[in-house]
Amino acid sequence: MRTNDGLIAATLGALAVVAGAAAITRKSAFGSAVGRRHQPTVIAARRLNRASGLIAASTLLDSGIEHYRGAFHNRAMIAPLVVSALTLAVSAHGTRDARPVAHRLRDSVYAGAALTGLIGTGFHLYNIGKRPGRFSWKNYSWQNLFYASPILAPSAVALAGLLGYYSERLRESRSTGAPRVFGLPAGRALAALTAAGLVATAGEAGLLHFRGAYHDPFMYVPVTVPPIAAALLAETAASRPRKPRRLARWWLRLTTLIGFVGAGFHIFGVHREMGGWRNWRQNVLNGPPIPAPSSFSGLALAGLAALGLIEEHPHA
């Protein structure tokens, strides 16, 4: 791929992400809905659309940057960009849609994203398998963990798809009694799924910050705050709450915040590399990944959606 194409693609991608994120977070989207908009399942579903969209925005930028590094040497490397962009778009649509029915297109895009994430993981494993050292747990497996195709990255695409797919199921779930999805109590199942996502993402942040030698004490934040959020969510999923989950709610809000603050830190980190932003073509690739932390925000939003459901419907 020619440099200019890469530049144009990157710029367009960034624009799309900003536009999508703006659409998702627009408060008015919630206010403008009519009729049964206060139905808790729909509210939770829309929150999930938002969460999914945020994660998709993060994966769109991240895979864009990483696959640009890889010079798109395999055509399939464009797939996560397309899929993430679509996920972002349908999520934007979903956050503005107050109807209690699943949407065909959204549904299939989300399902497609989940599938793409899985296939991507397969691709990345295959790639590592081609390198000397492969998966053997000798020390050069670290080399592959740090520098080869990242194993965990595609699962973020899958996670965005999964959350979105879940939101569609939630939307169409029966409104009488406690909502259930796939036969499970919707709130709890979602809390558990989100907790797992947070743990995995914190794991990835842990690996990458270990790679960066924790040279800044703030680098411990993403390996402490989100796991606690995950624990609170897991506890919520496992118990029958009587009172509102005050602590969990605040902790999830904190987690949302650190996702965005983290991106700010990473922007500063790029500036701190040799040549700073003037040398962006190197430093955006080799410096800290700017879009990565916002996955935490997306997951925390999903966690908040789960809390909302559970508080509304103690049996959900």
């Binding site: 040549g275 003037r278 190197q282």
Partner: peptide, 12 residues
């Protein structure tokens, strides 16, 4: 310098 290189693998 300041810009070095990013793509270190074979044929990159």
């Amino acid at each position: 310098s300041p810009r070095g290189y990013v793509r270190m693998y074979f044929n990159r």
